[in-house]
Design a protein around this nucleic acid. Sequence first.
RNA 1: GCCGUUGUAGCUCAGUGGUAGAGCACUUCCUUGGUAAGGAAGAGGUCGAGAGUCCGAUUCUCUUCAACGGCUCCA
Length: 646
Amino acid sequence: MIKITLPDGSIREYPVGTTALNIALSISEGLARNVLAAKVNNEVWDAQRPISNDSTLQLLTWNDTEGKATYWHSSAHLMAEALESIYPGIKFGIGPALENGFYYDVDLGERTISTEDFKQVEDKILELAKKKSQYIRKEVSKQEAIKYFTDKKDEYKLELIEGLEDGKITFYTQGDFIDLCKGPHLPDTNNIKAVKLLNIAGAYWRGDEKNKQLTRIYAITFPKQKDLTDYLTLLEEAKKRDHRKLGKELELFMFSEMVGGGLPLWLPKGNILRERLIAFMKKLLVENEYQLVTSPHIGNSILYKTSGHYEKYGKDSFQPIHTPNEAEEFLLKPMNCPHHIEIYKFKPHSYKELPIRYAEFGTVYRYEQSGELHGLTRVRGFTQDDAHIFCTQEQVTEEFMKLIDLVLKVFKALGFNDYTAQISLRDPNNKTKYIGSDEGWNKAEKAIIDAAAAKGLKTVTELGEAAFYGPKLDFMVKDALGRKWQLGTIQVDYVLPENFSLEYIGADNQKHRPVMIHRAPFGSLERFIAVLIEHCAGEFPLWLSPEQVAVLPISEKYHTYAEQVFKKLQSVNIIGNLDDRDEKIGRKIRDAEVKKIPFMIIVGEKEQEENTISLRRHGKGDIGSMSITQFITLVETEIKSELEKK
RNA sequence: GCCGUUGUAGCUCAGUGGUAGAGCACUUCCUUGGUAAGGAAGAGGUCGAGAGUCCGAUUCUCUUCAACGGCUCCA
């Protein structure tokens, strides 16, 4: 007998060679039906794999990330089986699970697959799933593995096998399909009840453009038909919220071929969003003892050669600008930091002045590859809510804690309540990618970890994700649809102060090197607004709304009164429009609703006589009548509560 | 940058080897209407750009640009 420790700490005894599935069955039949895989001694295993030693065991179901991953990975195998039966001789690359669904890279040879073929593949997958084929794990020698795939003429799998250690190679078989795979897999295919092929895309074998391009087929499966329907509804909803679509519909921003791809033009309404976000941030900056500075859009290349960016990114940037006579070289500003460094160097600094915090809404330009441009989230010119903090080593952790507070305050005011922080550290196996001393890096990494811990942040740590000049703390928010976005960032930098020989005079009357912190709570205004649009589906918080109110006169007779109301609102900075078109009220209301204007004020005979307004709320309908003053108070109260959310 | 798809009116889209159509928006007129589309008429397009095939190209071919879906990249 062996001892199995369950997550609740209880220990049960089972015969040697029992499986997670059997153990689940011993607890309850329902549980056994839902088991997709199991964590045995913290390693994800097949639920049907024999356990021969004392172990800890956690059963994994659809509610566990690893359970889902196993489910989708097994689904990828099933899709491969379906594809192989439809397209005999097809070759397979890799077929991993994703956060939502899975894909398989295939080499179809001369054939092609298109969305019209999806139905056939989906039907085949369901047909195979119904056979309830078991996923059978088999350990094979490297020689056997090579022989199998040589016979099958699958050079991709052979290449994968080459990189594997003999004795650690396993095959999984379900139905007629055998795949090289380390697993784990579902007990059988019967769990896969609903499938949808999502799209096809080209993908280079092993992500290298020198290699052959394979066809990547994305799909998703579910244990219940309803889950699939829900997922497809979610995709629809995401489409409706797409900031590119809403940006056009709500007249927030545009792109022009004449101006160039990735260079957004802000329309008047979108610009109000920008201005309000900037005003909001400036207020926070003043409260947090930042000083605003301004730097030009181009800088001498010496600046970026000194910073190290030129060497690292110069060849991928926009081409330098050359002067006609003096043979000088300028770069479009790709970041603000070197400029702020020069501002720091304007005069010597005492330790008593530190930390010095220079902030700027600086527009920077980066050459993004044409295929990478995407709405406002990936552009070639964007405005950072940038600041650089110059402080002593001792001040780093405290500054970091203040910055975490600042970022969180911003998130709360904008309704991003679900966030995590990612600590990005060096890849310990590839230190050459980074510049700066080991000592500096170690200190910086520790400062971030300490500050995040002191603030009780929910964090994940990623090795190898640091910037080349220093580690960073990035904030990921989850939007209303549960999608993750990276927004704010805080980065420590020991390299630039070194490259620019920054100094301050310490209490000991000696020169010391300050530490620099880069930070941007929004990240970039463009990206932030894109995420915000999708998060709130274009229904902005009242304080940000570019059109807070629409004043709708019932007919021409009440235009004068409507105008009085409108002017009164304008005088207290409540913005919007006066709809004096020759249309019926129903039409005016509809148009205001479609534009997602938070408040509609309807004025006619009754209102004019009583000197009141009739109020309607977007999405909610008629609220009733009140005085203008009451309405103004209502708006001001709501804005105040939005901005002061804790 | 690479692969694939797409490009027709301001927007959303239909359509064709014989120089184009709908709905909405727009303009004018009628209507002065009380909580999600009142009615009529009108105007609007080198069919993304360039080249080729053809008697003739928006339609077929090539090139190019842009957008979209991916890949690679991201200070």
